[in-house]
Design a protein around this nucleic acid. Structure first.
Length: 258
DNA sequence: GTTGAGCGTT
């Protein structure tokens, strides 16, 4: 039974999702299953992992069959040291698709009513003062969080995933990073080709218009095609035999590698 | 080998 999140969501129609935070990066669902199953009927245990590295993010989701058992596990396993780390167990706030959850129980599948399909509202979830009351008991214990020693270096921990370029963000951006973790990665990769260590490489000519439409090369700028004589380097290369030999389309491959 | 805010997959 080590394939919980491997087969996707089994059945979350009448289950209560528990969020387990502060779990070690090497803790697997199998390690949490027997731990949570002892306090109730665990229908599923899922640990979100990174898309690139594949490592655990440090939190897991445990779905119980009954709320009373889930509540029991929350009070029992919350603050329990797992793998040498104190975990934090509490009811899930949101569902797998941002559904409305009440005490970890999913009320509706997805509120895809109007034009707003599954747009997860970036609500301020950073250190809620209201939720702090619920998790306060666990924090009051002795959460020796490795914070305090680092001032700005603590970001490197988060930026380790997208530290490629995110240091020029706003000081309050890392706070509201929210769920756009993957989005930042995609955007970063799109710009990963213009990466140069030479600052003088750019030629900021004031006379050159920054208009993107102006960057059109003048080689094929002639609609009448009279200039084609100038750009006929080797007509032999396009010989019928050569094309068949190459068997490659003259059109640039529409490969969207990213 | 590492890290540590927070809410999820086929």
């Amino acid at each position: 039974m080590s394939h919980f999140g491997r087969s996707g969501p089994p059945d979350i129609k009448d289950t209560y999702s528990l969020l387990v935070l502060n779990v070690t990066f090497r803790t697997t669902a199998d390690d949490l299953f027997p731990l949570f199953d002892k306090y109730g009927k665990v229908v599923d245990v899922f640990i979100p992992r990174d898309r690139r590295t594949g490592d655990s993010r440090g939190f897991a989701f445990v779905r119980y069959k009954y709320q009373d058992e889930a509540q029991k596990a929350v009070e029992k396993l919350d603050g329990r040291v797992v793998d040498g780390r104190e975990i934090m167990v509490r009811f899930a706030k949101y569902g797998p698709n941002a559904e409305r959850i009440d005490k970890g129980r999913i009320l509706e599948p997805v509120q895809r009513t109007k034009g707003r399909s599954r747009s997860r509202s970036p609500r301020p979830r950073h250190r809620d003062h209201r939720d702090k009351d619920s998790r306060r008991r666990s924090r009051s214990r002795s959460r020796s969080r490795s914070k305090g020693r680092y001032d700005r270096d603590q970001y490197r921990g988060r930026d380790r995933d997208n530290r490629h370029r995110s240091r020029s963000r706003s000081p309050d951006y890392h706070k509201g990073r929210g769920r756009g973790k993957y989005d930042e990665d995609r955007r970063s990769r799109s710009r990963s080709h213009g990466r140069s260590a030479s600052p003088a490489r750019r030629s900021p000519s004031p006379r050159r218009s920054p208009s993107p439409r102006r960057i059109t090369p003048p080689r094929d700028a002639s609609p009448d095609g009279r200039n084609h004589k100038d750009r006929s380097p080797t007509p032999k290369s396009i010989s019928p035999r050569g094309r068949r030999a190459g068997s490659r389309s003259p059109l640039p491959r529409s490969d969207a590698d990213d």
